[in-house]
């Protein structure tokens, strides 16, 4: 019973938060509601017995990613609203609605479950975090390391891109030269 209540509550909250995110004209509001939505999503992870994933969700999204967005917004003048020349609503809502409908239709059909075999079955004897650790550092060790390197690369890229000198970058200069030549 608790599960049902929790699921519907958090589902409603998440949907509301995300709707605010995509519709709000103010970037600051959008970001705040996004952060709230992320935290509510972690609730689903706890409901699904994926404790570690839930913790990671809170730390990474609500902590790191949101902080990044916040910092990025400091670079820009977020109080100035971006004037949006929005495309016709009808098309957008038709497309999204149709996709939602079709996805739901597909998902509602029963899945033949006896064909699916668990490769790394969960067991009750050890906790989720421990189980995740075992799988992550055995079977998924190489992807894990690759992901680590990818994060490092992304970090370096972020630093380089956002550093001061980048507003007069080499690429930019070439771009301008090309434009000048085109004008000539």
């Amino acid at each position: 019973m608790f599960e049902v209540v929790a699921f519907y509550l958090f589902a409603a909250l998440t949907i509301v938060m995300f709707v605010i995110t995509v519709t709000s004209k103010n970037a600051l509001y959008a970001m705040s509601s996004l952060a709230a939505g992320m935290i509510f999503i972690s609730a689903f992870f706890f409901l699904l017995d994926a404790d570690f994933l839930g913790v990671v969700q809170i730390i990474v999204y609500s902590g790191a990613v949101m902080a990044l967005y916040a910092f990025a917004m400091m670079f820009m003048d977020t109080t100035k609203e971006v004037k949006e020349n929005n495309p016709p609503k009808k098309i957008v809502f038709f497309l999204s609605g149709m996709i939602a409908l079709l996805l739901v239709l597909i998902l509602l059909t029963p899945i033949i479950s006896d064909k699916v075999k668990a490769l790394y079955p969960m067991s009750d004897e050890i906790g989720n975090t421990e189980a995740v650790g075992i799988v992550l550092f055995t079977k998924y060790l190489v992807p894990f390391e690759v992901a680590a390197i990818m994060l490092l690369v992304a970090m370096i890229a972020g630093i380089i891109l956002a550093s001061k000198r980048m507003d007069e970058s080499i690429t930019l200069k070439i771009d301008q030269e090309i434009e000048q030549k085109g004008a000539e």
Binding site: P87, I91, V92, L95, S96, M98, I99, L102, L103, L105, I106, T109, P110, I112
Partner: peptide
């Protein structure tokens, strides 16, 4: 980019329709 995304979503829609049309009868 906006227009391209719209085309992409139209493509996705077509693919989903195909999935439903051609999904094996259970």
């Amino acid at each position: 980019l906006s227009k391209m995304l719209r085309w992409m979503v139209i493509g996705l829609l077509i693919l989903l329709v195909l999935v439903i049309v051609y999904s094996p009868v259970r």
